[in-house]
Amino acid sequence: MSPEHPATPQALRALIEQRRAVRRFTAEPVPDAVIRDCLELAILAPNSCNLQPWSFQVIRDEQLLQRLRSVCMGQQAAKAPLIIVVLARPDCWRDSCEQIIAQWPEPEVPAPIRHFYSKTAPFQYNQGWLGWRGLLKRQLVRVLGWRRALMRTPNSHAQMRLWAVKSTALAAENLMLALQSHGYCSCPLEGFDEVRLRRVLEIPRAAVPVMLLAVGKPGERAVYNPRLRFPLEQRVEWH
C-alpha cells in the first residue's frame, strides 16, 4: 500500500455499500481500458497456493450477447452491454506450477519455492486418471491423520472443482468492486443453462462456469428491492 494514498475504512465501506445487484442497464458500452483495469484487479485476489485457478471470457459482441440472453432464460440483467463469464479452472494447476517457476520475479527461484511447485503441489493436486491417485491419498490421509494435523483435501476431482471455485469466487468479488469503483454496476448471474452456455462459447471441458457477470451503467428501476441482510448476531459466533 502506498503511504501517500492509504486506503481508509470509510472509503472501503462506501464502495461496498454502493455495490448492488443491478437488473437494468443502459446501452452505454464499457470501455476496454476499464474492463482491463478491473480484470487486473480481479486477479490480485488471494488464491490457493497462488495457482490462480480462474479464467474470464469478456463478451461484447452483440450477436453473442443475444445468444447468452436465451442461455440466461431471458433475465432482464442479461441485457447488459457487457457480460464477463467467470470460470473456475481445476485443470490449470500443472501449467500454473510450471509458469510460477518460469516467471518468478527474481533472478533466482528460491529452493523451497522450486521444490513446492515441482514436487509438493503436483503430489497434492494430481488426482490421476479416473481419480486413482486421489483414492490412494484419501487412504493415506486417514492413516497419517491419526497422529498429526494435515491438509486433507483436495483428494478427488470433485474436491478439485470446489478448490478452484473458492479462489475464483474471491476474484469475482474483486472484479465487482473494481467495476463499482469505475462507476459501472454489475449483477452476478447464476441462473443460466450450462449445457447451452457451452454450445454458445468455447469453454474448456474441465472449466466450471461460476457465474455470468452482467456489467454496465444502471438504467431506470435498476435495483428491484431494498437491501436486506440478516443481523450479524444471527450468523456470527464469537469465541
Results as ranks from 00 to 15, higher is better:
1 M>A: 11
4 E>L: 14
12 L>E: 10
16 I>W: 09
16 I>S: 11
17 E>R: 12
18 Q>L: 13
18 Q>F: 08
21 A>C: 08
22 V>E: 00
23 R>W: 10
23 R>I: 01
25 F>P: 05
26 T>R: 03
27 A>E: 13
30 V>S: 00
32 D>C: 01
35 I>R: 02
35 I>N: 01
35 I>K: 01
36 R>F: 05
38 C>D: 04
39 L>T: 10
41 L>Y: 08
41 L>I: 08
41 L>E: 12
46 P>G: 08
47 N>R: 05
47 N>K: 06
47 N>C: 03
48 S>T: 12
59 I>D: 03
59 I>Q: 04
63 Q>P: 00
67 R>A: 09
70 S>H: 13
72 C>D: 04
72 C>T: 11
72 C>E: 03
73 M>W: 13
75 Q>K: 07
76 Q>V: 14
78 A>C: 08
82 L>P: 00
82 L>F: 00
84 I>G: 00
85 V>G: 02
85 V>P: 01
85 V>Y: 08
86 V>L: 02
87 L>W: 07
87 L>Y: 09
88 A>F: 07
90 P>T: 03
91 D>C: 04
96 S>P: 08
97 C>H: 07
102 A>T: 07
103 Q>C: 10
104 W>N: 07
109 V>W: 09
109 V>N: 02
111 A>Q: 09
111 A>W: 05
118 S>T: 14
120 T>P: 04
123 F>R: 11
124 Q>C: 14
127 Q>G: 06
130 L>R: 15
132 W>V: 11
134 G>V: 07
138 R>N: 14
141 V>M: 00
144 L>C: 14
149 A>W: 04
150 L>K: 15
151 M>P: 12
151 M>F: 13
151 M>I: 15
152 R>M: 08
153 T>R: 13
157 H>R: 12
158 A>L: 09
158 A>E: 15
159 Q>M: 14
159 Q>P: 03
161 R>L: 04
161 R>C: 13
165 V>D: 05
166 K>H: 12
177 L>M: 09
178 A>S: 14
179 L>A: 01
179 L>I: 04
181 S>P: 11
181 S>K: 06
184 Y>E: 04
185 C>H: 12
185 C>K: 06
188 P>T: 06
189 L>M: 14
195 V>W: 09
195 V>Q: 14
196 R>V: 03
196 R>P: 00
197 L>D: 03
198 R>K: 14
199 R>N: 12
199 R>F: 02
200 V>W: 01
200 V>H: 02
200 V>M: 03
200 V>Q: 02
203 I>V: 13
209 P>I: 10
211 M>P: 02
214 A>G: 11
214 A>Y: 09
215 V>L: 02
218 P>G: 12
221 R>I: 03
221 R>Q: 13
223 V>F: 11
225 N>I: 10
227 R>N: 13
230 F>Q: 11
230 F>A: 08
230 F>T: 10
231 P>Q: 09
232 L>V: 11
233 E>T: 06
233 E>N: 12
234 Q>A: 15
